[in-house]
Design a protein around this nucleic acid. Structure first.
Lengths: 201, 201
DNA sequence: CAACCACCAGACTGATCGGTCTATTCCCTC
DNA sequence: GAGGGAATAGACCGATCAGTCTGGTGGTTG
């Protein structure tokens, strides 16, 4: 969750970093209000950046949206992976839901940016939509890795199915936590997921 | 799923039904493209109705959106209830997922209109958002009723929790089916839900 | 017949949309 | 110190946004 603010993404670090400011502002606004509800002018105002700087770094609004989602995807996944994989392999499935619980209680939590963005995408073939489905696919793969490590006896098929089940449970929990509040949601999801996992063979 | 086309909603049935045409057109467009991506002009063009007729029946676009969601909520719930409750009580939990599977494979399926609309709502206190959360709450209650009938030994607390678990699983399945395609998704969700149900006490 | 009412077509408003263009300034590197 | 690239402010474009207003049509009802 905490934003990784380490090094400039620009190859040469001599500019004043309009790109980073744009991505940060766009991220906040798009996540909070939705992609279609936020105009270019509002983004550049929040970023404190000229409009031409935006179109210098990005081809279009869609391109900015895609870049934001790409970045967010990388940040979110690496946060989760780091968070989950610092506990022993056997505890990782439960740790996933501890991480979810923490995330759900973040002050600015507004559900899954990728599910939300996918809901606004005009075309399933758009880059935006592809990134969104890629996000859930990557999450599915990460979960598969974790339960493979904690349940080495599972065959490849059961593994993929159990991982899908758990990914769907996580997706439902995120949606529920956003719409009805975060309390206890991750705990319920963990309960369901561990049942699935326990029963897998 | 099939639209209930029975009687005119207007108290006096002598008009030509611009309101119904508007709700039908708005429903199609809003569900398919998202609320914020569809303008008033497109709605009235599709409905074949004058702009003033829209503002005669609805106060604003938000009001039209709310009316559409209300109507859709009522239609969807009554479809599901009718579908599930025509099988014996013991089969109703599984029948829920048979209904989901059928719905997921509908040609124009684009996920849950209420989850999608909630993602676009500008304010959690808006009427739109309230209808969306109300929708999932009503679904939760319906599920609670079904598992109460099929598992009469369950206490009130376990009942509510199990129903929440299953509602979250359904929500996750809807999202997954929309983003990754409908095949087999309901089957996986049913599997998880029946585990939850079997283990509830 | 006259009043009424739902409905129609379409012009119009002010704001905002995504995006382009010009002109200027700053700073870094040859 | 000259050149170049990244940044700036802000005017401008046509399109579209939600919403208003005028004026007219046709059918129903008193």
């Amino acid at each position: 969750m905490p934003a990784a603010r380490s090094k400039s993404a620009s190859p040469k670090a001599r500019n004043r970093g309009a790109r980073e400011k744009l991505l940060a502002a766009a991220g906040e606004l798009f996540y909070k209000h939705g992609v279609n509800a936020v105009g270019i002018d509002r983004v550049i105002a929040k970023a404190g950046v000229a409009k031409m700087s935006l179109y210098h770094h990005f081809d279009s609004k869609d391109d900015l949206v895609a870049a934001w989602l790409q970045e967010k995807h990388a940040a979110w996944m690496s946060w989760l992976v780091e968070r989950v994989e610092r506990v022993p392999v056997n505890n990782r499935p439960r740790e996933l839901f501890a991480a979810m619980d923490e995330w759900f209680h973040t002050p600015d939590f507004k559900g899954c940016a990728f599910i939300n963005a996918a809901a606004e995408a005009k075309d399933p073939r758009s880059k935006t939509f592809q990134i969104c489905t890629g996000h859930t696919s990557d999450l599915h793969n990460a979960i598969k890795g974790w339960i493979a490590a904690s349940h080495p006896a599972l065959g490849a098929d059961s593994l993929a199915l159990a991982a899908q089940d758990i990914t769907m449970i996580v997706a439902g929990a995120i949606t529920w936590a956003w719409m009805h509040g975060p309390d206890g949601v991750a705990e319920r999801a963990r309960h369901s997921a561990l049942l699935v996992l326990h029963e897998a063979r």
